[in-house]
Amino acid sequence: MSIGGDEYDEQGRTSGAGTSTRRAPARGTRTRLPGEDGDVYGVGRRPAGRPGRSLLMVVSVVVLLIAAIAFANRSGSSGSEGEENDPGGGPAAQPTAPSGQMPVQTEDGTTGIPSGFPQTEQGAQSAAANYAVALGGDRMFNRDSRHQIVSAISAPSAVEEIQSGFDADYNQALNDRIGLDTAGRAPEGSTFVNRTTPVGAKVTSYNGNDATVEVWCSGLFGLAGEDSTKPVTANWFTVTFKLSWAGSDWKVAASSQESGPTPVSGDNPISTADEIGSAAEQYGGFTYAR
């Protein structure tokens, strides 16, 4: 049975499914003479296509295809920076493709943390990624800068609870174990490295005013120096943020962290302490957008 439900008999004739098959009336034999233009049923033979015309058609199709691709690429990048695209337009097969929306409108002048994220799922993911960077940086080891960071990103009703939790984690005993002074500074001749890099983000729940976002991260942590007993190591973890819309921006209501997913380490040669320290000082971070 063919597509559409038609059935074929031995002669190649078709009949609808469930109907009887009628044989076509017999036709007389006709002999084609050399040089005759008509076929056996009297239909004129089509002249063979000219090679030049076929080549022209192929070239025309290729040119049109290239022009269409160029036009599509130009159209995709011609929007203004402040223009908002359809947040649901991203294809599911490309979860890390950018949405095209502006990631942030302003930046906090005290902490340098991006702010003003749009009230969309993409905005929530952008906020979570940037907050993961702020909370996973070396400024968290200084009490004053830590309080500024937490105050800037936390929901008003959750500031005190989040602040006390981080104060308990980032205490002087931790600084002593790492080799930092009370201000979170590394000893002379060493560079303290604590940097978080978001690899991806996803929304696990969203209702317009509240969102739960998971951010998969890679991190660097340790002291880069010849005499360091805490060399810089790489680690992988996932931070989960519960965000709430605070009138004009996404703010953190709660956060948690777990290890992984962790890939297999590559076979890259290990860099020296000087190389790591110089890289940490010379290469700045980014503003992240979904």
Results as ranks from 00 to 15, higher is better:
213 V>P: 08
204 T>Y: 08
172 Q>P: 04
162 I>F: 06
26 A>V: 03
5 G>M: 09
217 C>V: 04
265 S>W: 05
244 S>G: 14
136 G>R: 01
134 A>F: 07
240 T>I: 04
216 W>R: 05
262 T>S: 15
154 S>T: 01
21 T>H: 15
52 G>A: 14
35 G>I: 00
194 N>P: 06
14 T>V: 13
164 S>A: 11
188 E>Q: 11
40 V>E: 13
210 D>S: 15
36 E>H: 07
127 A>S: 07
168 A>V: 05
287 T>N: 13
6 D>M: 15
114 P>G: 09
126 S>H: 00
257 Q>L: 13
139 R>F: 12
28 G>Q: 04
226 E>Q: 07
216 W>F: 12
123 G>A: 06
156 P>F: 07
250 W>N: 02
164 S>Y: 13
253 A>T: 06
112 G>E: 11
26 A>H: 02
1 M>E: 09
289 A>Q: 10
121 E>I: 00
187 P>C: 15
216 W>D: 14
51 P>A: 10
167 D>W: 10
193 V>C: 06
93 A>Q: 09
190 S>M: 10
33 L>F: 10
32 R>K: 14
115 S>K: 10
90 G>L: 15
105 Q>I: 03
69 I>H: 06
7 E>L: 15
244 S>Y: 03
176 D>Q: 15
99 S>Y: 10
65 L>F: 11
213 V>T: 08
221 F>H: 02
285 G>S: 05
96 T>F: 15
148 Q>K: 05
220 L>A: 09
93 A>Y: 09
199 V>T: 03
181 D>S: 04
234 A>Q: 15
48 A>Y: 11
268 N>S: 08
2 S>V: 03
34 P>N: 02
271 S>Q: 11
170 Y>Q: 12
241 F>P: 03
10 E>L: 09
12 G>Y: 14
262 T>W: 13
77 S>I: 00
195 R>F: 13
175 N>E: 09
146 R>G: 04
239 V>M: 15
75 S>N: 05
39 D>I: 04
90 G>Y: 01
131 Y>Q: 12
71 F>A: 14
143 R>C: 02
282 Q>Y: 06
35 G>A: 07
222 G>T: 01
116 G>S: 01
199 V>P: 00
251 K>S: 07
123 G>L: 05
269 P>M: 01
31 T>Q: 11
50 R>A: 11
275 E>W: 05
14 T>H: 14
248 S>V: 03
184 G>E: 13
160 E>N: 10
223 L>N: 01
10 E>Y: 08
120 T>P: 02
20 S>P: 14
68 A>I: 14
50 R>M: 12
287 T>K: 07
18 G>V: 04
219 G>V: 07
218 S>C: 00
56 L>A: 12
143 R>W: 11
119 Q>Y: 04
147 H>T: 09
245 W>G: 03
257 Q>I: 06
35 G>T: 01
